[in-house]
Design a binder for these strands. Structure first.
Length: 689
DNA sequence: GGGCCTCGAGATCA
DNA sequence: CTCGAGGCCC
C-alpha cells in the first residue's frame, strides 16, 4: 500500500494554513488581540485537518492540528534537561533582600565588574505560581517539553504542552539557534480556573483546590486530549541551552527576544537599579497582586547583565545572581481540636496540633506540627485555643501564634507525656537534646512501623506493595517484629489481612524476596542508622564494599569516609555494636539478605532496563546489529514489530510502515541522537568508533 | 504537607 | 466502585 502522491499545491497550502493559524493563535493567546473571528479560524483549521487526513505524510510535528491532543501515553518518559533547571533561593523580608544585594555587589566589585558604590541593574518580574517546564526547540520547531523533576531529569510531557496555545510550535524568528531550551511556567488564570471548577461541578466531578494544582493535574494527564480541554497558559521567563547563541547581553534582552519569538512574557517585567528600586518594584507588583490574571507568590530579582551573572555563578543548586522575594504567607485563624503526639522511626516524640480544617494558601490545613517540646512551650498552644496558621515557605503548615484573648477559660497547658503513647516505655530526653524520644525501640509499635516502612521504601530496599496499610497490619498482628521477619512471611499469614487477596499477597512476597539482593548502599541506608542518610550510606558502601567490613570498622576508620565526622562515626559504630541493632542485622543476614557489593545505581548504569525498542530505517552511524547490541547492553530489548508495549521507536532514513504504526499508537519516536541520549552517552564521532 | 494523577486489585452489587 | 500504593509538584 503506497502513500498517495502529494500534489505540490497541497503542501504549499498546508504550510500556508499552518503559518496563518499559528499567527492567529499567537494574536489570540499571547497578545490577547484576536485578528480573526472564531468561525473563520475554525474554517482554516478544518481545511488543514482535511488536507492532513487526505495526505497523512503532510502532517508535521509543528502542525496546529496537533494541539487537539494525541492518543494516550502509557507513561511519561524521563527527560534529561540539557542544562539543569535550578531552583531559586528565597528572601522573606527586606533584610534578606538587602543581604542579597550586598553579596552581589561585593562579588561583582571583587571581580572588577562594577565599581565601588555602583548600583546593580536587576531584572524584576512576578513569580508566577504554576509549574516550571522546559521547552526544547530544534531549528525553531518545538520538539519536546518536560517538567522540572529534580532539576536534572524531569518527565516528558510534550504532547500535553503541544496543546497549550501559547506554546509556539514554531518560533516566529528565523535566527533561532539550532537548539534552544525555553524555560517558563505553565499556569491557569484565576478566572479560567473558576470556570473550569464550575464545569467540573456541573459535571459532578471533583473540584480543584487552586489554579496551580489544576494546572499541574492537567499537565500530568496521560491523555493529552484531556489537557487540550484545560485552559492552560505558558509564560516564558528564561532560556537554558542555546541561550548564548541568542547574542543577548542582558536578561531583559533575552526576554525581549522570547517575546519576538512568540512567547508570552510577564508584562510587569522591568529593569531597576539598586536595592531601593528593587523594593519599590516589589511593592508595585504586590499592590497589583489581586488584579493580576494569574496567581503569584512573590517577585523574582535577577542580575540583568549576563556577564555579571556568569561571574556570580551558582552555589549548590541555586544561582547567586537571582533570588525570589516571597510575599508573606497568607494566614488564617482556626481552632486547635486536639494535640497528639507522634512517634517517629527514631522514637522522636513530635506534638501535632489537630486543627479545625481551614483553607489557607490554596489548601485545606487540618494539622500542623508543633515540632518539639520547646517550640510548644514557647508558643504555649493548648487544646481549644484559637490560633493563627500559615504555610511556612508556602509548604508546611505552621501554627504562628495563639490568640490569647480567645482562649477558653480553664484550658490547661499541654504537658508532654512521660510515657510513650504507643508502647508505654519511658520518654527520655538528654540535657542537650531538643527532642524527647521513646525508649521502647522495636518494642514500640510506632517505631517498628516506621522502621519497616523506611526499610521497604523506594530509596532503600524498594519493596513494592509494602505500604503503610500493610505494615500497620503486620505490626498489629505480631507478624513482623523486625525487618528480618518480612522475609519469613508466608502466603497463609497474609491471606487473612484486609484488602490482601491472593494476587496482592503473591506480589508483595515476590517483591520481598527480590529485595534480598539490593546494592549495599541501599541496604546500609535501609538499616536506618541515626545520622546516615542516602548520601552517607553511599559513601560508606563505597569505602567498605561489604557489610562485614563496615561493621568491623572503628570510629577512626569511619571518619575517613567523606563527610563523616565524629558524630556520624559514633552513630554508625554504635549501631553495629549495640546488641539490639546488631542482632537485627544478624537476623537479616541469616534470612538470606545479601547486599551486593556493587555501588548504588545512580540510575545511569542501565538506563533502558525493562524498555522495549523497535528499530526501523537506516541509522546514520549504527548498523542494526550495533544498535541492538547497544540497547541490550543498556538493559533494553529490541523487537521486530511495533505494538502498544513498545517504549521507543528508533527511526532512521527511509523508515517504512513501522513509523506510521508508531505515530498512530502515539509512541515515542526518536532518532539515533535520541537513542544516544537515552543511553546517556555521547554520539560517536562521525567516522565510526 | 497537601493535592493531583494513575494503576491494580479488592469489595460490592446487579 | 473504592482503596491502597506509588509518583510528582510546589
Amino acid at each position: 500500500m503506497s502513500a498517495p502522491q502529494i500534489p505540490d499545491n497541497a503542501s504549499v497550502r498546508a504550510a500556508a494554513l499552518r503559518a496563518a493559524i499559528e499567527q492567529h493563535n499567537h494574536a489570540y493567546y499571547v497578545l490577547d488581540a484576536p485578528t480573526i473571528n472564531d468561525a473563520e479560524y475554525d474554517c482554516l483549521f478544518r481545511e488543514l485537518q482535511e488536507l492532513e487526513t487526505q495526505y497523512p505524510a503532510l502532517y508535521t510535528s509543528d502542525s496546529p492540528t496537533g494541539r487537539v491532543g494525541a492518543p494516550p501515553l502509557s507513561k511519561f518518559l524521563p527527560y534529561t534537561h540539557r542544562q539543569p533547571m535550578r531552583s531559586l533561593n528565597n528572601a522573606f523580608n527586606t533584610a534578606e533582600v538587602h543581604a542579597f544585594d550586598e553579596r552581589v555587589r561585593d562579588r561583582l566589585e571583587a571581580a572588577g565588574i562594577i565599581s565601588s558604590g555602583a548600583r546593580v541593574g536587576y531584572a524584576v518580574e512576578p513569580k508566577f505560581d504554576g509549574l516550571a517546564v522546559n521547552l526544547c526547540y530544534e531549528r525553531g520547531v518545538f520538539v519536546a517539553g518536560a517538567t522540572r523533576g529534580d532539576g536534572t531529569i524531569g518527565e516528558t510531557v510534550t504532547a500535553n504542552l503541544r496543546t497549550i496555545r501559547s506554546v509556539p510550535l514554531r518560533l516566529l524568528l528565523n535566527n533561532a539557534p539550532a537548539l534552544l531550551e525555553v524555560r517558563g511556567e505553565v499556569l491557569m488564570r484565576k478566572q479560567e480556573f473558576l470556570h473550569l471548577n464550575a464545569a467540573q461541578h456541573a459535571a459532578g466531578k471533583k473540584l480543584f483546590a487552586n489554579p496551580r494544582n489544576a494546572a499541574a493535574g492537567s499537565l500530568r494527564q496521560l491523555d493529552s486530549r484531556v489537557s487540550a480541554k484545560r485552559p492552560l497558559f505558558f509564560c516564558a521567563y528564561g532560556v537554558g541551552e542555546g541561550g548564548n547563541a541568542l547574542a543577548c547581553d542582558t536578561h531583559a534582552s533575552q526576554l525581549a527576544w522570547l517575546r519576538q519569538a512568540g512567547f508570552a512574557i510577564a508584562s510587569q517585567s522591568t529593569v531597576v537599579n539598586g536595592e531601593v528600586e528593587l523594593l519599590e518594584a516589589y511593592q508595585k507588583i504586590a499592590s497589583m497582586r489581586d488584579e493580576l490574571p494569574c496567581e503569584i507568590d512573590g517577585v523574582v530579582y535577577k542580575v540583568n547583565d549576563l556577564a555579571a551573572q556568569r561571574a556570580l555563578g551558582y552555589v549548590s543548586r541555586a544561582p547567586r545572581f537571582a533570588i525570589a522575594h516571597k510575599f508573606p504567607a497568607e494566614e488564617a485563624r482556626t481552632r486547635v481540636l486536639d494535640i497528639e503526639v507522634q512517634v517517629g522511626r527514631t522514637g522522636a516524640i513530635t506534638p501535632v496540633a489537630r486543627l479545625q480544617p481551614v483553607f489557607v494558601g490554596g489548601v485545606t490545613v487540618s494539622s500542623a506540627t508543633l515540632h518539639n517540646e520547646g517550640e510548644l512551650r514557647r508558643k504555649d498552644v493548648r487544646i481549644g485555643d484559637k490560633v493563627r496558621v500559615r504555610r511556612a515557605g508556602d509548604v508546611i503548615p505552621e501554627v504562628c501564634a495563639v490568640l490569647l484573648d480567645e482562649r477558653p477559660a480553664g484550658a490547661p497547658p499541654f504537658v508532654m507525656p512521660v510515657h510513650c503513647p504507643e508502647c508505654g516505655s519511658p520518654v527520655e530526653k538528654g540535657p542537650e537534646e531538643a527532642v524527647a524520644r521513646c525508649s521502647g525501640a522495636m518494642i514500640c509499635p510506632a517505631q517498628l512501623r516506621e522502621t519497616l516502612l523506611h526499610f521497604a521504601s523506594r530509596r532503600a530496599m524498594d519493596i513494592e506493595g509494602l505500604g503503610e496499610r500493610l505494615v500497620g497490619q503486620l505490626v498489629e498482628h505480631g507478624m513482623a517484629l523486625s525487618p528480618a521477619d518480612l522475609y519469613r512471611l508466608h502466603m497463609s499469614q497474609l491471606a487473612g489481612l484486609e484488602r490482601m487477596g491472593e494476587t496482592s499477597a503473591k506480589k508483595v512476597l515476590t517483591a520481598i524476596t527480590a529485595s534480598k539482593h539490593r546494592e549495599l548502599a541501599r541496604f546500609v541506608y535501609a538499616l536506618g542508622i541515626r545520622d546516615v542518610g542516602e548520601a552517607t550510606a553511599r559513601d560508606l558502601a563505597r569505602r567498605y564494599g561489604s557489610i562485614e567490613a563496615l561493621r568491623l570498622a572503628d570510629c577512626e576508620s569511619l571518619q575517613k569516609t567523606p563527610d563523616v565526622g565524629p558524630v556520624v562515626a559514633q552513630s554508625v559504630y554504635r549501631f553495629f555494636h549495640e546488641p539490639h541493632t546488631s542482632g537485627a542485622l544478624d537476623a537479616l543476614l541469616a534470612v538470606g539478605v545479601s547486599p551486593t557489593g556493587a555501588p548504588a545505581s545512580d540510575g545511569a548504569a542501565l538506563p533502558l532496563v525493562g524498555k522495549q525498542l523497535v528499530l526501523t530505517g537506516t541509522l546514520p552511524h549504527l548498523t542494526r546489529n550495533d544498535a541492538k547490541a547497544l540497547i541490550e547492553s543498556a538493559g533494553g530489548k529490541t523487537t521486530g514489530s511495533v505494538s502498544t508495549k513498545t517504549d521507543y521507536v528508533v527511526v532512521g532514513a527511509d523508515a517504512g510502515s513501522k513509523l506510521e504504526t508508531a505515530r498512530q499508537l502515539g509512541l515515542t519516536i526518536i532518532d539515533e541522537a535520541g537513542l544516544y541520549e537515552l543511553l546517556h552517552t555521547d554520539a560517536p564521532p562521525a567516522s565510526g568508533g
